[in-house]
Design a protein around this nucleic acid. Structure first.
Length: 482
RNA sequence: CGGGGCGUAGCGCAGCCAGGUAGCGCACUUGAAUGGGGUUCAAGUGGUCGGAGGUUCAAAUCCUCUCGCCCCGACCA
């Protein structure tokens, strides 16, 4: 059972995050360093994320499949940038069945190589294209420093891998899936992400271009929350994915890959959470509504519980994810705090006074205290009232997160100003940018801020680079990032 | 791997300097009262003091070695 409260964000943001994850029972540390146990509450949230994404993948013509966890080491080495990018973080299997293996196997850090290999066998004709496959699975990256959900040695994700006959089609696919991620983040997770292209320094190892959705966390840091890569013909060439086109000529396929991981859980925690704990968007919350019965005397207990059970059943039948908290060992105040910490979007309080009126009290998670309460909600038509309220809360959370992001997005005219923002308020810094990769490295070293993306939306037009003084129409968003 | 810190009950810690019955808070169990914002009282359960060796009549405490973990830095969905 969770103890009292979480560390306030202002006191220690990292501690707050860890407290939230552990006390709300989303996840726990494992005996293996760097790995985590995703507990039922966290896994249930992930399942809702999966369902919302999977539906979108299917709607855009994709199918699911599963490729092996173990990949021949030689596969990784075929694409020069790819192996360079991933070599430092590989887990390698050298022994099996008590014997040393002829060729070491890597535990997949990502599956472009093995899927590329299979695609080369499956693609012979332009008629075999496109291939639009997604995989739900786990990957392993041997990271030095780990944080629950944000960076662990093993994590769950989905990785889409597609192959197309033309460059245009593959580029379209890359954008389409980035759009799917953005739509998911905004409309399901209530996180107002910025879509854009990754700088060369930050792009995926082996990609021609990488695109990202960047979210702002409660401390102003950025979190890359999903990526979509245009791989050009890089992987097709090294894995020999070629086909005969309509002119009877051999051509290499154009491929893409795109992924979103359990890191999204971390994004939801940090984009919405407050000092009370988690705040989950209704569309993804494992429990959308909790019913808390309140009574003083045993005589009241019966009627209160009866109404609470009736309301719970009605909502359940209406498809609302609802839970009745009839635990006798805790008083109402404890339960209020407990469910608020766990981020349940809507609480329904039912006491003797409510029973008399055949009504209930709504209490919103996103607006704490009396301000967020609605008294005297009639039991008749409760399901519609709850549905409406959940929609309102979902919208309210998105609006608040958007406001927060905009309020913490700064523009600067000079590097001095840039540094002042980072040392002071923090957040996103949106600037004209004509610097090189080396300039980017220098800025990172001096300020720990990196280019999060070149945003698609840039109403600013041309201007002067804050760093080099050159005129440019390129806009970059800098921030400290997880 | 470089710099700093820490291992005593499930969690957080005190005790160590000046060796002498292993403690506190939370959690957990039981009972009672309480109950519209983390309520209270009482009684309990639970520990080879990270490990090994040494000094000593006696070691959580002193000495030696060792293992592990955390924080900061390089890497990262």
């Amino acid at each position: 059972m969770a103890e009292k409260g979480v560390t306030p964000r202002g006191e220690d943001y990292s501690k707050w995050y860890t407290d939230v994850v552990q006390k709300t029972e989303l996840a726990d540390y494992s005996p293996v360093k760097g790995c985590m146990v995703i507990r039922p509450y966290g896994y249930s949230l992930w399942e809702n994320i999966q369902a919302a994404l999977d539906r979108r993948f299917k709607e855009t013509g994709h199918v699911n499949a599963y490729f092996p966890l173990l990949i021949p080491m030689s596969f990784l080495k075929r694409e020069a940038e790819h192996v360079e990018g991933f070599a430092p973080e590989l887990a390698v299997v050298t022994h099996g069945g008590g014997k040393e293996l002829d060729e070491p196997l890597v535990v997949r850090p990502t599956s472009e190589t093995i899927i590329g290999h299979m695609y080369s066998e499956w693609v012979k004709s332009y008629r075999d294209l496109p291939i639009l496959i997604n995989q739900w699975g786990n990957v392993v990256r041997w990271e030095m420093r780990t944080r629950l959900f944000l960076r662990t040695t093993e994590f769950l994700w989905q990785e889409g891998h597609t192959a197309h006959a033309t460059r245009e089609e593959a580029e379209e696919e890359t954008q389409r899936m980035l759009g799917v991620y953005a739509d998911f983040a905004i409309n399901e997770a209530a996180i107002p992400v910025v879509q854009g292209r990754k700088s060369d320094r930050e792009k995926f190892a082996g990609a021609v271009a990488s695109y990202t959705i960047e979210a702002m966390m409660g401390n102003g840091w950025a979190l890359q929350s999903g990526t979509s890569h245009f791989l050009g013909q890089n992987f097709a060439r090294v894995f020999d994915i070629k086909f005969l086109n309509q002119k009877n000529e051999f051509a290499y396929a154009w491929t893409t890959s795109w992924g979103l991981s359990t890191r999204m859980v971390g994004a939801i925690i940090m984009a919405h959470g407050d000092d009370q704990g988690l705040m989950l968007p209704p569309r993804l919350a494992p429990t959308q509504v909790v019913v808390v019965p309140i009574w003083r005397k045993d005589a009241e207990r019966g009627v209160v519980l009866a109404l609470a059970e009736q309301v719970t059943a009605t909502l359940g039948a209406a498809g609302v994810r609802v839970k009745l908290d009839s635990r006798d060992e805790f008083n109402a105040g404890y339960k209020f705090n407990d469910w608020e910490m766990r981020g349940v979007p809507l609480r329904i309080e039912i006491g003797p006074r409510d029973v008399e009126q055949n009504a209930v009290v709504f209490a919103r998670r996103d607006i704490l205290g009396k301000e967020g309460k609605t008294f005297g909600v009639p039991v008749a038509g409760i399901a519609d009232a709850v549905r409406d309220m959940l929609v309102t809360i979902q919208a309210g959370m998105l609006a608040r997160a958007t406001e927060f992001r905009d309020a913490n997005t700064h523009t600067v005219a000079s590097y001095d100003e840039f540094r002042q923002v980072l040392e002071g308020p923090g957040g996103f810094i949106r600037v004209h940018w004509a610097g090189t990769s080396e300039d980017e490295d220098r800025i990172k070293e001096e300020t720990k801020a990196t280019v999060r993306c070149y945003p698609f939306e840039r109403p600013e037009g041309e201007g002067v680079c804050f760093y080099t003084g050159q005129r440019t129409d390129r806009i970059a968003i800098f921030a400290r990032a997880y």
